[in-house]
């Protein structure tokens, strides 16, 4: 088993990096990711104020922050958007766009954001990078935010799944054997997802997609299409939210 140094950023793929903060005291671990694609640098779900200095330090280890021109905010939560204003202030790039859903803009502007927005629903749920690489945005309404989106990188078949496929556990590792995560995954989904009716629909959609790995905002990365399928199958029939009494 490879030992990972969580003090530094971790390469997931050649151009996708984990830049999160491993807080050993916490049971909910947040995973911001950085995608570097030539002239386009995309930061996924940058996180909170307390995480800012570490996340940013890891980013600085990799690139010049001014080169970041997109930040994906998959929904409005503070564990995703809390440090957005500081982030954009430090990035200091007039080209910077916050990628999110229109309804979410209405909410996250209250963080005091100054950058322009890239509203996915107004852009055919697609962002084409300068290299020609295409990022697809998949709306996952009410999982758990009404405005939640996932990002699918066609090139690497990577799904940035936000809160879906997350886990909540003190016992965290970035890469974990899938079956050992189900307990924590169940806990998380039952706590935060509204109903299996909604979750199932989403899973059925994902079943038909060609996904090599899932990069969730919480918990562990799911590597390999078979593992992905297993996870989808697990969540598909998981009762959660109002299903439980």
């Amino acid at each position: 088993m490879i030992q990972y140094n969580y003090n530094d950023s971790i390469n997931i793929l050649r151009d996708i990096h984990w830049v999160g903060f491993y807080d050993e005291q916490a049971d909910l671990h947040c995973n911001p990711y950085l995608m570097v694609d030539g002239l386009d640098v995309i930061l996924f779900d940058p996180g909170s104020i307390p995480h800012f200095s570490i996340v940013m330090r890891k980013i600085i280890d990799l690139i010049h922050p001014e080169s970041i021109n997109h930040i994906v905010a998959s929904h409005q939560d503070p564990d995703i958007c809390g440090n957005l204003p500081v982030m954009e202030d430090l990035i200091n790039n007039p080209e910077l766009r916050i990628i999110t859903e229109s309804g979410c803009v209405r909410l996250i502007q209250h963080y005091g954001i100054n950058s322009k927005y890239f509203k996915v629903d107004k852009n055919n749920n697609k962002l084409i990078l300068k290299s020609g690489r295409v990022l697809e945005f998949i709306p996952t309404p009410y999982l758990h935010s009404p405005f939640a989106i996932m990002t699918y990188d066609i090139k690497t078949k990577t799904l940035f799944s936000s809160d879906i496929f997350g886990t909540v556990s003190k016992d965290w590792e970035l890469f974990k054997e899938i079956n050992s995560t189900f307990k924590a995954m169940k806990l998380w989904h039952q706590a935060i997802m509204p109903s299996n009716v909604i979750l199932k629909k989403c899973m059925e959609k994902l079943q038909d997609m060609d996904i090599e790995r899932i990069l969730p905002q919480h918990g562990s990365i799911i590597e390999g299409s078979a593992e992905v399928k297993t996870a989808i199958t697990f969540l598909k029939d998981l009762p959660c939210g109002i299903d439980l009494d």
């Binding site: 800012f52 200095s53 570490i54 940013m56 330090r57 600085i60 440090n83 500081v86």
Partner: peptide, 10 residues
Amino acid sequence: LIEKALEMRC
């Protein structure tokens, strides 16, 4: 050091 600086920056 970098983190301290960034924290201060923050």
